[in-house]
């Protein structure tokens, strides 16, 4: 039998395992919009009881289920992997399911509004089509010239695989793109997410269409619009170094090496 190794508990583990209820009252201040009811958006406050360890998404559900069934938002997996519930929480783009109440100062009202730069359709739901169109425009799929399909997998060194690891994490939640001031002011800009997904292929050693993708991003609405504000990097719920990826694409455009 193996030796017990868990005789000491950290304070963090004790806190995680605590079953003592510690509900607090918080205020959610939500930007409501429903063109079926009114042409104008307005802020609405809701008071509710939550455990500080609960997620903002839990709060939204609580409101929808117990107070106002008309409150509308997208969500699915509820743990930061499906990318449905990007929203602006206290002025910052985050996933509602990855933001815990205790991490955002519940003393003050928690503001929740739709992400910016995309048309709001109802409450926290925006039109995602322009976002996905920009994604489709960068040819987000592996392109190889060789028409003879290999019978085994292509070889790729662990280093070559590592080169584009960071940008494979993207979940297309639009938190980055809708945090970008350039995107807010000019809907034509591809936006960070599309560039991240181009990066994922440009730096994949198996892909052979890097030049084509670079030309697409060399467009006036391409990477040169980026003003390096780092909003996108701060917003990414997957911890992707978005600004760095954009800079690497810019550098590849100059050196034509990738």
């Amino acid at each position: 039998m193996s030796t017990p190794t868990l005789d000491k508990h950290s304070a963090a583990l004790d806190a995680a395992e605590s079953t003592a209820a510690q509900k607090i009252t918080v205020t959610f201040r939500i930007r409501r919009f429903n063109p079926e009811v009114s042409a104008d958006a307005q802020w609405q406050d809701f008071q509710l009881e939550l455990d500080p360890k609960e997620r903002v998404l839990d709060g939204l559900h609580k409101i929808k289920w117990e107070q106002d069934g008309t409150l509308t938002f997208r969500r699915s997996c509820a743990h930061g992997i499906c990318g449905s519930d990007a929203m602006r929480i206290n002025g910052k783009n985050r996933l509602a399911c990855k933001t815990l109440i205790k991490d955002i100062n519940p003393e003050k009202p928690i503001t929740v509004e739709a992400i910016k730069g995309l048309t709001v359709l109802k409450d926290l739901v925006v039109d995602m089509e322009p976002f996905f169109q920009a994604y489709r425009d960068v040819m987000p799929f592996l392109i190889t010239k060789d028409t003879n399909e290999p019978t085994r997998e292509r070889l790729q060194s662990a280093e070559d695989r590592e080169r584009f690891d960071d940008t494979t994490k993207c979940i297309l939640c639009a938190a980055c793109t809708s945090s970008c001031p350039v995107f807010w002011n000019d809907g034509q800009y591809f936006g960070p997410a599309a560039i991240v997904n181009a990066h994922r292929f440009i730096f994949d050693s198996r892909d052979e269409a890097g030049e084509q993708r670079l030309e697409i991003l060399n467009d006036k609405d391409g990477v040169w619009r980026c003003r390096t504000t780092f909003n996108c990097t701060d917003a990414c719920p997957r911890g992707i170094e978005v600004t760095k990826a954009i800079q690497e694409v810019k550098r590849a455009l100059i050196t034509r090496r990738f």
Binding site: F141, L142, E149, P150, T151, R152, E153, R154, L155, Q156, S157, A158, R161, F164, D165, T168, F201, D204, R206, D207
Partner: peptide, 20 residues
């Protein structure tokens, strides 16, 4: 099926000799 996904571009982790 795995080889098809690799051909479609799936970034599998690799062994030191470059296979999946």
């Amino acid at each position: 099926s795995v080889l098809d996904l690799e051909k479609m571009g799936l970034p599998f982790n690799r062994t030191p000799n470059g296979t999946i």
